[in-house]
Structures are given as structure tokens and as C-alpha cells.
């Protein structure tokens, strides 16, 4: 089976400052990747159950669960990765130690390994992601065309993905180290891209700039910058002739006279001020040299319909690239 999209990307890591909508963008991207028959895994690692809230399903278990069908027959499965469950699964898979899990849990070793042992938590989380990316069925085909990760925020993303650096200060050999190395090979390969979600505001843009610099320094491939909640464009000139507005309003039966006209013009001025600010931030984003994708603010709350509209908007901007005819 071909990879979803023709850019060879199989692992999409979506990060962003808190409050920028990275979970929403990750879900929309998963739907876009699943169009035309793709099978996509959408996963989260921070125990927030953000995916379940977005798709309005019960909290996700540690088990791949279908949350949506995409237009054209594809599907999106979701997985909330819990480090303790991942560790127990890992022990069972590689050491046949299923029974040890409960003893380790009782004495607090699982808690220890997943909270304080340096880097181990991140190795477990990224290790599980890598396992899903690499998983093949009986015929040797990839089980998932693509994996989308709703990742930790921009401030922590490089450290999260750069697991070897953290672990190698402690473990120069042994299973933790080799697991970290194999994760690192996938994360640094052209099959992976880290996308950054931002709003056109000072702090999120600054974090995006800093985050991209850190990712580049760590040689982790940077993908797109996704500008979320872009304002609707309105054709509003700097000078508005109030007399014309008054006449036009009267022609469609909107009364209220001067107060209404002044109020509307004041709203236009505030809008233009905000847009000018956003345009300056957008110029900073574009100067980063990564492809930029714009997502418009959706009217109303984010539900399945809104997610599909966002997925359409991503696809219309070539993200993911349309599949090559084969």
C-alpha cells in the first residue's frame, strides 16, 4: 500500500504552544491523511484525553480505537499512550515478563521508571509511536499509512524527540539505549516531520521561531508551520465613507442611524488594527523558510463537521500532497 500522500512522510508530529489548537490541527491532519482510503493512527501522550473530547467519544483506553471514518473510505484510529502501560507492554514483548509488571508496579518501580528515571518516560512514549509507524501485517504491508502525534508543546518538543541525548548520559549500553537509538533513527529520517501550530500573536510566534531553531540544531526534520484561527478576510478600506454606509443600510432596512454607523466603523478600525498586527507576525513566520499553511477560524464550536472542513482546507493547500496517480 502506498503511503498516504506522496511525500514519503509516515510520522507527522504536531506541536505548538498551549492554546494554539494543536490537538484540533492534529485531528484535522489525520482526517486529511485518511481521505481516499488511508488508515491513520492519531495518538496523544500527555494523558489529557484531548482526542476523545474532540471526537466526543468516551476516554480512550490504551488500545487503538476507531474514532472517525474519512470521506472516501479511510479511517482514523486513536490511541492515548500511557507510559506505565507502554512499559508493561514493552516488558511483555521483549522480556516475556508480563507477570513482573504487577510486582514492579506494587513496589513503585513502574512509577519510578515512568516519572523520574531520566528520559525513560520519553523513550517509552516515542518507542510506542515508532512501533506503530513500523508495524506490518502478515503480508509485510504497513498497518498504518501514517501516524499523527499530538505531541508535547513547542517548549518541550525537542527534548521529547531527542531521547538519545537524555538517555545516553546514563545508559551507554543496554536495552534502554538501543531502544532510544532505534527511535532516534526514525525521528531523524525523512519519514518524519515536526509541524508547528501557531496563532498570529507575539508569544506563539516567538515560541515557533525558537522551537524551529532547536529542532534544526538537533537535526530533527521540520515540516510545516500551520497558522491556526486565521481571521476571515473582509474587504474593508482604511477610509470608510459614512454617508455611503448610511445610505446602503437604509436601502436594506437597517435603522439606528449615526450610532449604528459609528459602531460598525469602529469595529472595522479594530479589525484592521488586529489584521495589521497579524500580518507583521505572518511575515515573521514566512521568514522562517518552512512551508506555511493557513487555517481559517471556524464559525461555531469544533465538532466533526468543523474538523472535516479543516481537513479539506489542509488538503486544498497541498497538505498532505495529493497521491500520485498509479
Amino acid at each position: 500500500m502506498a503511503a498516504a500522500g506522496n511525500d514519503g512522510l509516515r510520522l507527522h508530529v504536531v506541536t505548538g504552544k498551549g492554546g494554539t489548537g494543536k490537538t484540533t490541527v492534529a485531528a484535522a491532519l489525520a482526517l486529511a491523511l485518511a481521505r481516499d482510503g488511508g488508515r491513520v493512527l492519531l495518538s496523544e501522550v500527555e494523558g489529557r484525553q484531548g482526542i476523545a473530547q474532540l471526537f466526543d467519544t468516551p476516554p480512550l483506553p490504551y488500545e487503538e480505537t476507531r474514532v472517525a471514518r474519512a470521506p472516501g473510505g479511510g479511517e482514523v484510529l486513536a490511541l492515548a499512550i500511557d507510559p506505565a502501560a507502554a512499559l508493561i507492554e514493552y516488558l511483555a514483548m521483549f522480556y516475556h515478563l508480563r507477570g513482573a509488571g504487577s510486582i514492579l508496579n506494587r513496589i513503585g518501580a513502574i512509577e519510578f521508571a515512568t516519572t523520574i528515571a531520566p528520559g525513560v518516560r520519553d523513550v517509552l512514549l516515542t518507542g510506542k509511536i515508532k512501533e506503530a509507524v513500523d508495524r506490518r501485517d502478515g503480508q509485510g504491508r504497513y498497518v498504518y499509512d501514517a501516524v499523527v502525534l499530538d505531541a508535547p508543546p513547542t517548549g518541550r518538543i525537542t527534548r521529547f524527540l531527542n531521547v538519545t541525548a537524555d538517555v545516553s548520559s546514563l545508559a551507554r549500553m543496554g536495552p534502554v539505549k538501543s531502544q532510544a537509538d532505534s527511535v532516534q533513527r526514525v525521528v531523524r529520517s525523512p519519514a518524519t516531520a515536526v509541524h508547528l501550530v501557531t496563532l498570529l500573536e507575539e508569544m506563539p510566534v516567538q515560541e515557533t521561531v525558537d522551537g524551529i531553531a532547536e529542532l534544526r540544531a538537533a537535526q530533527i526534520p521540520v515540516g510545516r508551520v500551520i497558522v491556526n484561527l486565521r481571521r476571515q478576510p473582509y474587504p474593508l478600506p482604511a477610509r470608510i465613507v459614512k454617508k455611503d454606509v448610511t445610505e446602503a443600510l437604509t436601502s436594506v432596512g437597517v435603522g439606528g442611524g449615526k450610532a449604528v454607523v459609528d459602531g460598525l466603523v469602529a469595529e472595522a478600525a479594530a479589525y484592521r488594527e488586529r489584521v495589521a498586527l497579524e500580518d507583521r507576525e505572518l511575515a515573521d513566520v514566512e521568514a522562517l523558510g518552512q512551508p506555511v499553511t493557513l487555517l481559517a477560524q471556524q464559525p461555531g464550536p469544533i465538532d466533526r463537521g468543523a474538523l472535516l472542513a479543516l481537513a479539506d482546507s489542509l488538503a486544498a493547500q497541498g497538505f498532505p500532497p495529493a497521491k500520485a496517480a498509479s
Partner: peptide, 21 residues
Amino acid sequence: AAERLEQAGGSEVTAALLRLH
């Protein structure tokens, strides 16, 4: 009101003001 202005080919700016509002 914005829809009616647009249909009648009336003031574009006024229609935009109404939609923004």
C-alpha cells in the same frame, strides 16, 4: 442585511461591515 446588499449589488464595504459585525 448583508445578503440582501450583496444580492442587490449594493455597497460591498457596507456588506463587509455587517458580516464583520
